[in-house]
Amino acid sequence: MTQLPTNLRARTLLLALLLAAAPLYAAPPEAARVDADWILARLARPAPDRTAFVELRGSKLLKTPLRLSGEYRRPDAATLVREVRAPYAETTTIRAGEAMIARAGKPSRRFSLARAPELAGLQASFGALLAGDRAALEQHYRLASAGTRQHWTLTLAPKDAALAARLQAITLYGRGAELRCIETQPVGAETQRTLLAGAAQAVTPVMATDALAMLCHGDGVAR
């Protein structure tokens, strides 16, 4: 076992893995408002599933965010896979309480989720999200929804003091039954965005950072 990473990258990775594969969007009534129950009912989905992603990782040391692209997969209900294809090749697999990271030309690294209570808590929370279990999710987060069925947001604010000291909130942006973007707001650090499904497919190699943010948020999203 290698030492478990404790930074927000690991937490964002797990969140993205658990939320990545979203069903195709079907346009609902435009004026209908949403609440958390409506959103959770549409995010719940069984395995197997897969979706493309584009992750923007900001840093004060970089002029523009690092852009990663690849695919998230849930081959079965107990296995989560994140495959980075560019600008490097790396595969992270979460299964049976462990995470394994494999990168070309380097030995695989394996660590236990049980050794990090915050990370294990996130795993349990977003397992509840995939099941559409609001009561279980609210054990760890305060939920706030906004928007319409055409453009909605669901914000998760951590209740745990240790996690709240590092993470302000996680905001999900969606359209109908399609989860299009996950925006993670660390305390004192750059906002991290993961574009999924249709939003990821709309990204172009020359798209500017502000355009990527607009693509994440979507026109008309209440926020």
Rank of each mutant, 00 (worst) to 15 (best):
R142T: 10
L18A: 09
A199I: 02
Y25W: 15
R180K: 00
L195P: 02
E178K: 04
R45Q: 12
T51K: 08
P65I: 12
A114G: 10
R166P: 04
R42P: 01
I94D: 02
E55A: 15
P107M: 08
V34F: 06
P158F: 11
L129Y: 01
L172H: 00
E71D: 04
A41D: 14
C216F: 11
P65L: 13
Y173C: 05
A21Q: 13
L8C: 09
L56D: 01
L62H: 08
L4W: 12
Q3C: 12
R95C: 05
A21I: 04
R115M: 07
Y88A: 01
A20I: 05
E30V: 15
A22T: 11
Q192I: 02
L19H: 07
S108A: 11
P46T: 14
Q150R: 11
S59Q: 11
E183Y: 05
A32E: 15
R45D: 12
T79A: 09
S145Y: 02
D76L: 10
P28C: 10
C181N: 06
R33I: 06
S59A: 15
Q192P: 07
L56K: 00
R95Q: 10
L179V: 03
S108H: 00
Q150S: 03
A124D: 08
E83Q: 13
L4G: 12
A86C: 09
T91A: 09
N7I: 10
A135K: 06
G218N: 09
L172P: 00
A52Q: 08
R50G: 08
T51S: 14
V203K: 02
G58C: 09
L61K: 07
T64W: 06
V221Q: 11
Q185R: 14
L195D: 03
A222T: 02
A136R: 09
T91M: 10
Y88F: 15
L40I: 07
A169G: 00
R223I: 06
L40H: 09
A52L: 11
T184S: 06
A31K: 14
E118C: 10
L156G: 03
L215P: 03
T209S: 06
K63E: 12
T93N: 00
Q3G: 14
G97V: 01
L212R: 10
L130V: 04
A197C: 07
L212V: 09
G58W: 12
L24G: 07
G97M: 02
P46K: 12
V221Y: 11
Q201G: 03
G176Y: 06
R115T: 15
D49P: 02
A89N: 01
Q201M: 10
I39R: 07
A131M: 01
T184W: 04
T51R: 12
R45G: 07
G121L: 09
D133R: 01
